[in-house]
Write a protein that binds this DNA or RNA. Sequence first.
RNA 1: GGGCCUGUAGAUCAGGGGUAGAUCGUUGCGUUCGCAACGCAAAGGCCGCGGGUUCGAAUCCCGCCGGGUCCA
Length: 914
Amino acid sequence: MDEYQLDYFKDNGFERKQCPKCCKNFWTRDTETQFCGDPPCVSYSFIGAPVFKKEYDISSMREAYLSFFEKHGHTRVDRYPVIARWRDDIYLTIASIADFQPFVTSGLVPPPANPLTISQPCIRLDDLDAVGRSGRHLSTFEMMAHHCFNKRGEEIYWKDRTVELCDSLLKSLGLDLNAVTYKEAPWAGGGNAGPSVEVMVGGLELATLVFMDLKQTKGGSITIKGESYEKMDNYIVDTGYGLERFVWASKGSPTIYDAVFPKIVNELMDLAGIEHAIDDPEYANFFSQNARMAGVMDISGQANLLQLRKKVADSIGTTVEKLQRIMAPVESVYSITDHTRCLAFMLGDGIIPSNVKAGYLARLVLRRTLRLMKELDIREPLIEIIEMQIRNFPEYPEFKERLDTIREIVGLEEEKYADTIERGTKLVRKTAQHFKEKKEKMPLGEIIQLYDTHGIPPEITREVSKEAGIDIELPDTFYSLVAQKHSKAQVEEEETKNLDLPQTRRLYYESPEQTEFEAIVLDVIEKNIVLDKTIFYPEGGGQPADHGTLSVNDYVVNVVDVQSLNGVIMHETDSDFGFKKGDTVKGNIDRDRRIAHMRHHTATHIVNEAAKSVLGKHIWQTGAQKSVDRARLDLTHFKRITEDEFKEIELRANRSVMNNEPVHIDWMDRIEAEKQYGFVLYQGGVPPGKDIRILRVGNDVEACGGTHVSNTGFIGPIKLLKTERIQDGVERIEFSAGEAAIKRLQERDDLLNKASEALRVSPEQLPDTVNRFFEEWKDFKKENERLKAELAQERVKAMMGDAIDINGLRVLAKKIPHADVEELIKAASEFSKNENVVAILASDKNGVKIVVAAGAGAQKLGVNAGAIVREMSKLVGGGGGGKPMIAQGGGTDPSKIVEALEKGVEMVREKVGS
RNA sequence: GGGCCUGUAGAUCAGGGGUAGAUCGUUGCGUUCGCAACGCAAAGGCCGCGGGUUCGAAUCCCGCCGGGUCCA
């Protein structure tokens, strides 16, 4: 491939070589260099031998990088949040280029500056197992980058300049340029691809320079890894320089953790009571060997970890056990250091822990950290360590602002985790006991079930089971087995048809009050009609489509749905009457429906703002739906909304209505709007396009494509109906606005009135009266029970004489009119307290009820109450059963009661003879 | 978004179509100068809510509400 034949390489004496180990091509200045520079072909050589002329910490390295690129014509851009709110395809920001996807990279929206430089905090949780152990893995890192967005014919710079900049940056840091190799590594990901080079120094990949110029296209002419691609009109320089790796390389310490967070590592070592001897040569040797070896292997998974331990132990002449004893706690400290930094970013940027979506990832990291802390017996509250991290980031003052909320969240999460573990431990103990008694091993399925359903990590299951006296085995592949359980077929992505039609002019934006219009039919696709312009609002942003009519002359059809396909609005009708291209149609929308939607939509913004002001800045809309008579709004919140908060939100929302605030709508450039208002704009999702519609009501500013009232007073009353917790960390508020709110209030009054009328009291007295009734009802129930028992005793006394004698058994067969089952049971069991008796009782309440009870002596003779009831019940058209001592049954045919009683007696006679 | 588990006495939980249970706690009595401990006894349940199936539902089915948990 000539993709990599750069003039820059040629002019600067580079040579292209092929690595004899991995057979990949690379470029170097140094004629001596043999290998590509990438582990496992080479191992780390920078440990103990820093590659730059001085040491940098995070801040100074970041500053050195950004100012270098500023000096070379780039504009510095502020970092984006670690939660990717401007995207709906990923939860976390995983790379600097993610900030500019999809609209900048696609060319739809111009970049905030071009070329630009940024240091973007990123979170990747894929290799969580390796963090702390490999010496180099981090869950959270800053990707320093410079990006350049080129258009065909308007190129700013491309490959040569990019490599040149990289060279000069490294040189400015004092690197001997002979030490760099540029390894060819074609890149593909996220629907894009292109050539790329990895910048290798001392065995460490310091940066990747990606030249993104291909996009995945069906039938594209270029094939990579089985996918077809074609050239893009926009081609992008996408670089990624690992800030932490640069710091590490500048220090040459045994691990990246010691290089990046020396202070926090030390404090945690103290808290864990570990002698931190990284300055001790023997100790340092352990870790540098470990890092070197780990650098050349993939260590995810237990089996691989053991393999690594063995290699390291062999190379320094010690045992695996000793190595494990020394390394494991320190590795845990490293993990905690990394994880708490991750949490500082996640919580600092407003992720609320939850059991779904990004919130789940935050909880995952949080619980993992708590587990590690427990293993090390660190008693310090987690929040203290997170605060330590936050103090360590003076460059992110926004974290300090949120500290109170973060403190509360972490406290709650710690409690929740403790609860889960306590519940879990009990459950494991019980399960273990169960299998111990059965003298069986605990099946793997059970252990998976404990984790999957109850969140108990397998390690805890093992530990607790051991205490309970049974040993269990855990396969290395435990977590992949869990994953398997959840794996399912991928959903086919819907193919969007491309209509070859112009975008429909949206009259509903131009004159939102209008309810009638004329337009020309551009196309008819089955029952769908496309017009040149429309006032019909297509479903979107949680607002349902308008309904109404379209007519030509006297012919009228109903519009039942309206959808927008890439800006072309389709009016679905309930008739296939032949509208023709070029017809002029008259359209009318259902005005009441539209107005109800508008009221609910604007009200949603107001309630959102009110909730934010009452509950806090962490409140974020995760979904919303409007209809004619109600709306719902889903918000991120870490605990239940209390009654008082609920009322306060309602009050503030209505104040906003009573203030009759104007609603401002402006079309703004996306980048401009983001700069001015921040990502809070994207409450209702991310709209496509260069220009976005900005809606301002009071303090609320959102990107919104819905139809809105022009002044809040038009909304009328807003009645909050209820809150619901739809997921952990997500609260749903339901409310009605305008006429619908009045109707809701009237309905509630009706309910109240009906309830108070039923009890003949005024609504004010209702609570007290209901309480009294309930208490009295309970008393009567008890009284009733007692009386039934008494009655049963009396009946038994009275009926004794009616019993007939069958071979020494006294058998009582009798119909007790109107008695319910409970009475029969009480009487029968009272009677059968005597040894040699059988009670066969029936009543005609609600069909037929039958109860048979046999005394102990009768049972010995073979009398079975259950069997008798079964036979008797058949006769009366039902069924029954029970125990030999007492059984119940019944049927629907009271006329057969006498017959059934005779049958019962006969069955006793059969057993004991006459 | 997709699963799985779960709701029974004040608390922790058993039962899992046929008379609602255990332990702790509570109250009373006994023993004691008194307490603890012990013994005896009692009170305490719309078996989350609403439907359905059934002669009969805490139990089975459906829906709702609440709690927990895993995955993407």
